[in-house]
Amino acid sequence: MTKIAFSKNGSSPFQQLLGHNDSILRNWTSLEECFYQSHTFTAELKEEVRRTLAFNNGCQYCMARGKPSEKIADLKISMAVEIADKISKRQPIDKFDKLKKEFKEEEIAELLAFICFTTASQTFGAILDLQPSCSII
């Protein structure tokens, strides 16, 4: 049971928690769509980052969609996951020079924004005790 009631606005339990303020719901969803429709990174990279963050941020709702992969062969995905892991654990990013060799500055900016946005979403879900068993009303 979530800590606040679901609104009637939104197409998922997460959105129904945000839906108490229609403007926030619309804009949050728009930014989420922007990240997931972007072709800068593969869907696999974004999903591995999302999974890593879910477990570090303690969002049960997000963790239910799968654990992070144990072995990642792709260097860019591996680096993105490592950065996400460090950020979510509040550790310094000590390999920024290596990151800049693999990613363009535009990619670094988008990756960090994606990590921050995903962390905010998952923190919101964790604080409100959003569970995978929650269903929309």
Rank of each mutant, 00 (worst) to 15 (best):
I83W: 11
G66N: 04
S78R: 15
M63F: 03
K76I: 01
L75E: 13
A64I: 02
T42V: 06
I87C: 10
Q91T: 01
I87Y: 11
N56S: 04
R51Y: 10
R50L: 04
D74F: 04
A43M: 09
K86R: 15
A43E: 15
S88E: 00
A73D: 14
K76V: 01
I87K: 11
R65L: 13
M63Y: 05
G66H: 12
V81G: 02
D74H: 06
F55A: 06
P68V: 01
R65T: 15
K89F: 00
E47M: 09
K46W: 02
C62M: 01
D85T: 14
A64R: 01
A73K: 11
R65D: 09
I87W: 07
M79P: 02
V49P: 00
F41D: 05
K71W: 05
L45W: 03
G58P: 02
F41A: 10
K89R: 13
E82M: 12
K76D: 07
C59V: 07
E70W: 06
N56H: 06
D85E: 13
V81F: 03
D74L: 01
M63A: 08
V81R: 05
S69H: 04
A73S: 14
I83R: 07
L53V: 15
C59S: 14
T52P: 00
S88Q: 00
K46H: 12
R65Y: 15
V49A: 10
L53C: 11
F41W: 12
F55N: 03
V81L: 03
Q60Y: 05
R90A: 15
G58N: 01
Q60S: 14
R50D: 05
A54H: 12
C62A: 11
E48L: 10
A64S: 11
N57D: 06
N57V: 12
M63G: 01
S78D: 14
G58K: 05
I87R: 08
F55W: 14
L75N: 09
E82P: 02
C59I: 10
A54L: 12
M79H: 08
E82N: 14
E47V: 05
G66Y: 10
A43F: 10
L53R: 02
Y61T: 06
L45F: 10
T42F: 09
K76L: 08
K71P: 00
M63Q: 15
K76W: 00
L75W: 06
E70T: 07
A43L: 12
R50N: 12
A43Y: 08
A43R: 13
V81T: 04
I77L: 03
K76R: 13
R50H: 13
E82R: 14
K67A: 15
L53H: 14
V49N: 09
